[in-house]
Amino acid sequence: MTKPTCEDTLVVKKRDLKNDYYSLVLAPFSQAKSIQPGQFVHIRLPSTDIYFRRAFSVASVSPVKEEVEIIFKVFGRGTKILGKLCKGNSLDLLGPLGVPFSFPNKKERAVIVAGGVGFPPLMFLAEKMIEKGHNPKQIEFFYGGRSKAELVELSRLKKMGIKLHLSTDDGSAGTKGLVIGPVEQYLKKHLKEKIKLFGCGPEKMLKAVDELGLKYDIKGQLAIEALMPCGVGICLGCVVPLKAGGFARVCCDGPVFEIGVVNIAC
C-alpha cells in the first residue's frame, strides 16, 4: 500500500453539476497516480470553525497532471465551505487512504449499484476497469437518485460505453422506485453468469445490496461511509459493527468491505 502523504493542493478546476453537486479537481498531489477506486482523501477545510478533516472518495485521477477529482453534494457545514471554493484556492489533502475495491476478473460481469452521492468511487471503478481491459458492455451500472436532477454526470457515464440503468424515486428518469428493484430483477435473470456486485450509497441501499448478495450467493464489495476524525486508523472513531462480532474501522479496514461482513445499521 502507498504511504499516505499530506500535501497542499490547488483547486485547478471547479464544475457546478447543478442541484448542489460540485466537482473539484485538485492538483498537484504527488500520490495521484497511486490512488485506486474506493480510496479516499481526507481534506482539511480552509475554515477556522471546522477543526476536523472531511473524507471524500476519489472520483477520478489524472496521473500525468497529478490531479485528483472529488464530487460532492453540499449537505452540511463542511461541504458548504467546499462548494464555495474557487479555482486557485488551496486545500490540504491527506491520502491516499483506505482499502480500494478489488477489480473483478475480465470474465466476470460487474453489477455496480450507485445511490445518490455514492456514485463517484463507482464511476472511478468502472473507468479503471475499462482502462485495464474490461469490456464496458460487461459493466451494468445501476444509478438511483430521488429525481432526475439528483443524477449527475450522466453524459460522462454514457460516454464510457457501460450499460447504464437509471432509476428515480419520483420516476422523472429511468425506472420509478428504488435502485434495488431493477438490480434484483437483473440478478434473477442472470443467475447463471459470473457476477460481482459493487455498491456505494445510503445505508438502506447498502443493506439491500448486502442482502441481495447473500440471497443469490453473489460475491461483491460495498464502500461504506462514516464520519472519520482521523482517517488513518488511530482514533477508532469511525467503527462499524461486524456480523461476526466486534468492530472494524471504516477508514483503514475499509471503506470497502466484502458483502456479508459488516452489520449495516439503518
Binding site: 477543526y51 476536523f52 462514516a226 464520519l227 476524525p229 482514533c235 477508532l236 469511525c238 467503527v239 468492530f247
Partner: peptide
C-alpha cells in the same frame, strides 16, 4: 476491550467528544 458501539465521536466547536470505550 472491543469498545463502545458507534457513534463514538461527535465534532464540537474546536473539539471532539469521544466515547471510544478504551477499545
Amino acid at each position: 476491550r472491543p469498545g463502545h458501539p458507534p457513534p463514538r465521536t461527535v465534532e464540537t466547536p474546536g473539539g471532539l467528544l469521544n466515547a471510544i470505550g478504551l477499545a
